[in-house]
Computed example of a mutant assay.
Amino acid sequence: MSKVSESQKRAIKKWEEENKDKKRYISHRARARSFLRDHATLEDLEELEAVLLERRAKLNEK
């Protein structure tokens, strides 16, 4: 078990406060990947494929 120094804890907290949107994005992405990898059923995957196609098309329009 590694210990984190107080200065490292402060640096982490500072980064998290300055990068709330990025932290939220990373968290959402990690949860989505975890769901897909560990919990999604075939039905879930089929539904998500449709959502992905729609999202990809929307992003390609920009």
Rank of each mutant, 00 (worst) to 15 (best):
S27M: 12
E43A: 04
S7H: 10
K22Y: 09
A57C: 03
E17N: 11
K9G: 05
I26S: 14
M1I: 14
A40M: 00
R24M: 13
A30T: 12
K14L: 11
R55H: 12
A40E: 01
D38W: 05
L53E: 06
R37P: 00
E17Q: 10
R55G: 12
R10E: 14
L52F: 07
E54R: 11
D44A: 03
L52H: 08
A11C: 04
L59C: 03
T41I: 02
R56A: 06
D38V: 01
Q8A: 14
Y25R: 15
L48E: 01
S5P: 02
E46A: 06
W15T: 01
Y25D: 14
R55A: 14
A57K: 04
L59T: 09
H28K: 15
E17P: 03
K20G: 03
E61Y: 10
R56W: 03
M1H: 12
A40N: 00
K14C: 08
R56H: 05
S34A: 12
K58H: 09
V51H: 06
A30N: 13
R33K: 15
S5D: 08
A11H: 04
K13Y: 07
E18Y: 09
A57S: 07
S5E: 08
E47P: 00
K20M: 02
K58P: 03
K3Y: 10
L48F: 00
K3T: 06
S7L: 11
K14P: 01
E49C: 07
A57Q: 07
R56L: 04
A57D: 11
L52P: 02
S2C: 10
S2T: 07
F35A: 02
A32N: 03
K9S: 07
N19D: 02
A32M: 09
N60S: 09
Y25E: 15
K3H: 10
A57F: 06
R24L: 14
K20T: 03
R31V: 10
S27I: 11
E17G: 05
R29A: 14
A40G: 00
H39I: 02
T41P: 00
D21I: 13
V51D: 08
E61L: 11
D38P: 03
R33H: 14
D21L: 14
H39W: 13
L45Q: 02
E18V: 05
M1G: 13
